[in-house]
């Protein structure tokens, strides 16, 4: 049985915008699944339909075999949602918010209080449990939404850009938490702007654009399709002319920095040997962009000049 199975899902809004054009998708139980796409691609509509906040025009959404359209209550009991926008009452306290959410899933108050304590502690919010939520920092508010989504211990956790605007330290601790949940069997679907995170966390991926799935595969196979990687090289001495290396495109960014685009079949040793021969010494090297970003940009047919923006 799949954690999520979507068949020929369509959504046309009242204003005529066709947000989803008959997409189909399967997410295995226990998967850590990335759902990526540019802004306006249809991801939020898709998540809205899965979580029943958006009514599908046609098609079917099954959560662990239960149709969201036919048996909403049973399907929803298995989902936890961390939405893109803050959607809790900012005048309530974190403890109230999490315990109330448990109540909406039929979890008795005594159990809800224990679970709220558990997840608020795990997400480093226990000392803020009785503060008014409005006074929490942006990162704390995001973590509060994760604690709230976890209180019913869902089998499927959907994270819609959960780390937007969160500093790197908190972001990493959030990912550790979500990885741990996934390791304990919860299926996770993630949308994010940070593609390096999708690359390191997710095993499978779907890319959606203009309301259609343009790629749906496992992360390893997708990354294997990358035929050229671009590296930034920092040089020890300034150079005047751009060095030429057979089969490798090199661009001078400034007199001490080069960008080299290397086809997959070429060895990096070739580049270094040739630069060495020309008297150019490389101090350090890094990827120009994350590999998934490069693929993503190719797939959604947007030039690098437009900048990278995913999810």
């Amino acid at each position: 049985m799949y954690a999520l199975e979507i068949n020929n899902l369509r959504k046309t809004y009242k204003n005529g915008v066709e947000a989803l054009k008959g997409i189909s998708l399967k997410v295995e139980e226990g998967d850590f699944f990335a759902l990526l796409g540019p802004n306006g691609a249809g991801k939020s509509t898709l998540i809205g339909i899965i979580s029943s906040l958006v009514n599908a025009t046609s098609g079917e959404t099954l959560v662990f075999g239960t149709s969201v359209q036919k048996d909403r209550s049973k399907a929803m009991a298995q989902i936890g949602l961390v939405p893109q926008e803050l959607n809790f009452n900012q005048f309530e306290k974190p403890m109230e918010i999490v315990v109330n959410q448990a109540g909406y899933y039929g979890i008795p108050r005594e159990i809800a209080l224990d679970r709220a304590e558990k997840y608020l502690k795990q997400l480093d919010l226990w000392d803020k449990a009785e503060k008014i939520s409005r006074t929490l920092s942006g990162g704390m508010k995001r973590r509060l939404m994760i604690a709230r989504a976890m209180v019913n211990e869902p089998r499927l956790l959907i994270l819609d850009e959960p780390t937007a605007g969160v500093d790197i330290e908190i972001r990493r601790s959030m990912w550790e938490f979500v990885k741990d949940i996934n390791n304990h069997g919860t299926t996770v679907i993630l949308t994010t702007h940070y593609l390096e995170e999708a690359e390191s966390l997710c095993r499978n991926i779907a890319i959606i654009d203009h309301g259609e799935i343009i790629k749906n595969t496992d992360m390893r196979s997708l990354l294997a399709t990358l035929d050229v990687e671009t590296f930034v090289l920092d040089l020890r001495e300034a150079i005047v002319d751009c060095p030429a290396v057979d089969g490798i495109d090199i661009v001078v960014r400034d007199d001490r920095t080069l960008e080299a685009s290397i086809p997959k079949q070429k060895s990096l040793n070739t580049l270094f040997a040739e630069l060495e021969r020309q008297g150019i010494h490389v101090l350090s090297m890094r990827n120009k962009a994350n590999r998934l970003e490069e693929l993503f940009m190719k797939l959604v047919d947007r030039g690098a000049a437009q900048g990278v923006e995913a999810a």
């Binding site: 909403r72 989902i79 009452n89 959410q101 909406y104």
Partner: peptide
């Protein structure tokens, strides 16, 4: 207020009829 602040979604995504 719940609709405006979007926290009505807490109920809408729950299994409550």
């Amino acid at each position: 207020g719940a609709k405006f602040g979007k926290h009505i979604e807490e109920l809408l995504i729950s299994p409550l009829p």
